[in-house]
């Protein structure tokens, strides 16, 4: 069996990784909570954001962390435009249609990236990617610590936006009662698109945190989608704080189960938790709504 230090480090690693998962899930849960749609294009959008970060670094020499200042607004625009011009009009708010449209968008995005960037796996080389912080016998990856901190800040920011700003209040109003919100003069389509845009900004942040240590190819987003869904369910669909806590929990569980079961069977741990939570407590462990 493993020594305490190893187990401790695995848990810490898992929590740090879980932070990034949470960011990916944050966008998903927000879109679900407000638009009540399962966004199949979420993975492809993450890939998009990762390619943007990569391009900013490779073509313009912008540091991946700094790139969020460029990629964030771009992703917001992309998300806003997609919801306003494609998903909304094409789906006419029918569940089956939304599903198909987001699926169609995922196909379009993924293959447009394939056509544009080719299938190569691309990486970003930075000086700090391999830095570690040693605490006693533990070696913690510095980029992951940064990522974790940013996730906490992002969650707090998102919570503040939702609870303390006018647009946030509008979003919550639309999430709760669409027709009512429209009656009091809220532009529902605009709110939908803004929500989608904010979800995409979360992905931009996640992408800039991932790129220093991870890689990107046109299909990579898929690797995060299922785990993000799990987190969304665990945290309660639509709950921002739930997504954060769910992300951390899943990160730790994944880390421990991969330590003891291996990374392949370790996935089972996540799916089984997912199924059990859905069957027993579908509103999620921390089931609060937006």
């Amino acid at each position: 069996m493993y020594s305490t230090e190893i187990v401790l480090e695995a848990v810490l690693n898992g929590l740090l990784t879980g932070g990034v998962y949470a960011l990916v899930a944050l966008g998903l849960t927000l879109v679900y909570g407000v638009l009540h749609i399962i966004n199949f294009a979420h993975g492809a959008l993450l890939t998009c954001a990762m390619f943007m970060v990569w391009a900013a670094w490779a073509w313009l020499g912008i540091d991946p962390y700094a790139a969020v200042l460029v990629v964030g607004p771009l992703m917001f625009g992309l998300g806003y435009g997609m919801q306003r011009l494609v998903i909304g009009p094409a789906s006419r708010h029918d569940d089956g249609n939304i599903l198909l449209v987001t699926l169609g968008l995922a196909i379009v995005l993924e293959n447009a990236l394939l056509a544009g960037f080719k299938s190569d796996t691309r990486t970003v080389a930075t000086d700090y990617a391999l830095e570690v912080v040693s605490i006693g016998p533990l070696l913690l990856s510095q980029p992951r610590l940064v990522g974790f901190a940013v996730t906490i800040v992002m969650t707090a920011l998102l919570w503040l936006v939702l609870n303390r700003t006018d647009i946030g209040k509008a979003i919550r109003a639309v999430a709760r009662e669409k027709t009512g919100a429209r009656l009091v003069g809220i532009d529902v389509d605009h709110v939908y698109a803004v929500t989608f845009g904010i979800g995409c900004v979360c992905l931009a942040v996640a992408a800039s945190l991932l790129m220093p240590t991870f890689y990107v190819n046109p299909r990579i987003g898929g690797a995060f989608v299922l785990v993000a869904f799990t987190i969304v369910v665990l945290g309660g669909m639509g709950s921002v704080v739930g997504a954060l806590l769910g992300g951390l929990l899943i990160g730790a569980v994944e880390s421990l189960s991969s330590l003891y079961l291996g990374d392949s069977l370790g996935q089972l741990g996540i799916f089984l938790i997912f199924i059990v939570v859905l069957l027993v407590r579908p509103t999620g462990l921390f089931g609060a709504r937006v």
């Binding site: 898992g14 880390s255 291996g262 990374d263």
Partner: peptide, 13 residues
């Protein structure tokens, strides 16, 4: 140690 493709993380390995 086996892992899926794509793997999200190698730090535990």
């Amino acid at each position: 140690i086996s892992h899926p493709t794509p793997a999200r993380d190698m730090s535990n390995i």
